[in-house]
Structure formats: C-alpha cells, structure tokens
Design a protein around this nucleic acid. Structure first.
Lengths: 140, 140
DNA sequence: GTTGACCTGTGAGCCGCTCACAGGTGTAGG
DNA sequence: CCTACACCTGTGAGCGGCTCACAGGTCAAC
C-alpha cells in the first residue's frame, strides 16, 4: 500500500502520512526499485491508533512515548492513564479560557449595537475596543 | 520610555513589545546616540489598544488592519464590527470542537477506570484508546 | 513515446509570541 | 578610570501539527 492509498483509507491527507513517517511514528518498508514507501496492515493499524489517540487529545509527543513503550511489548496503559489526566487538565483550562473569550466577544457584539462609530483621537483608536470593560485600568 | 519600562507598565513581556515593533504595529523613535527605542504616551495608548483588541480575540492581522484605518483618521468602527462577527463565528466553532474534545476525554477517563491494562498485540497497541467509541469504523 | 497522475525528500509557512545569541550601552561602586 | 552587571540591540530559531510548494523521478494507459 502506498501513501495515497493508506491516506484515502483513513480519510486523511497524504502529507500527514508522510509527516508521521518523517518524524518516525511510522516505518514503512521502502520499495528498493523506486524508493516508494510500502505500508502493510500493521502500519495501517498503527496509523489508526495514532489518529484515535490524537482525537482523544494526546500530543504527538505523547503518542511517540506510548508507541515506544508498546514497541517494547510492555503495556502502555499506565502511561496512557497518566497522560490523559494531564491532557484533560490542560483541556479544561483551555476550555475555561475559551469560554471567557467567547463570553467577552458575545458581550462586545451585543454592547456595540448600542454604540455609535467615532473617529480616532490622539489617545483613542477605537472607543468600542478601548472602552470595553475588563481592559487594563486607566487610573494607574 | 524604553522597552522594559513600557512592558512593565502594561504587564507584558519586553519581547512582545519588541515583536510588535518589529512587525510594524508600534513605531517608537530611536535614540540617535545609542539606537534604543524610545516610546512616548501615544505609543503606550497604542499598545494598550493592541492588548485590548487581542483580549477580544482579534488577530494580529486584524489589529494591523484596524490601525491602518485609524492612522488615516478614519473611524475604524465599521471594520471592527465586521471583524468581530467573523472572529466570534470562528470562536464559537472552536468552542464546539473543544467542548466535544473535553467530553470525549472525560468519558475516556471515566470509562477506563473499569478497564484493565493489556499488553499490545499485533493489531492492537492500546485497547483503551483503540476501543474507545467514536474511532474509525473497523468493519470497513 | 507521450501524457498525466502519482510518487520522492526537503524546506518553508502558518500563528503569536518567546527565547537564544553575540555584542553594545548605562550606571553604580571601588 | 575600571569593573561589574543589568539593560539594550537586531536577527534567527523554536514551539505544534500539520500543509503546501518545489523540482524531479516513476508508472500505467494509450
């Protein structure tokens, strides 16, 4: 199986397959006559694993680590349980940040419907943005 | 005012001030004897504007665009209203994605508490990850 | 033999900083 | 005047995870 066939099978970009190979997550044989990558069934399940892990929020570095353990025929499960706790914490934190951002943006859109346009002045570029609550205090 | 003083005043990294200067958002005078950047009050309010805009989810490119309009003494407000709609849409979409990811991760953590560790096999690297519901269908 | 769709490896681009580097400058203390 | 030492300079690279661009090789069908 060559790059594009594998990529099509798993519904991803061929360049992603090449990329994973480049960074050592996949190790296809190379056709000795033309140098093309040749993937087999094991490569396909390996790639399938990588994609599943990515969908669960594991980083490429995490995946690399998990594969190293598994490649030594040790169970990667403890590592996996450990890593997902960390990644979940980070995700919760990003989620909070993003929720706050979304709320600010929604509030801005709503608030700005009531406000007029204004020309910039020497110390004000856009009053909509600069007067939006939550900026750096100006009585500093 | 020099880089570090301005950075301290607005509680950001001096390198960020340098970066914004580098990409043309800020244009401090240069001290002719030593080449150091010299910021004045207008630079400070400009930077304050940039930071406020960033906190509202505008991209650097957006900020650049808004500043260009404002620098020609035109009101940037229509542009600002237009841009925030786009950014809000993108943010809502990222928010949905992140919510789904967070839910998958939480569910995985919960589900995996009931499941044992297992050694890798020829076609399975980590059953926790590969058997997690929502992966690519295997009856393909 | 020619077309045209595939393949190769490598380098760069995306975003928004942040850090590293090598060297110049400013200031306080001896 | 000399020495520390903290600051400043510009530029280049690194982060993550791809994605695209490039120049050229390969292969099947006609």
């Amino acid at each position: 199986m060559r790059v594009s066939e594998l990529a099509t099978k798993l519904a991803i970009n061929p360049d992603t397959v090449r990329y994973y190979t480049r960074i050592g997550l996949l190790s296809p044989r190379k056709n000795s006559t033309n140098g093309y990558k040749e993937f087999d069934g094991r490569d396909a399940s390996r790639l399938n694993f990588i994609l599943s892990a990515r969908r669960l929020g594991f980083s490429i570095e995490d995946v690399k680590h998990i594969l190293e353990v598994s490649d030594q025929n040790e169970t990667p499960c403890p590592v996996v349980r450990n890593l997902i706790e960390q990644r979940l914490n980070e995700t919760e934190s990003r989620y909070q940040q993003l929720t706050l951002l979304r709320n600010r943006m929604r509030e801005a859109v709503k608030l700005w419907q009531e406000l007029p346009d204004r020309n910039p002045t020497g110390h004000m570029i856009c009053h909509l943005i600069e007067n939006f609550p939550g900026g750096v205090s100006s009585k500093d």
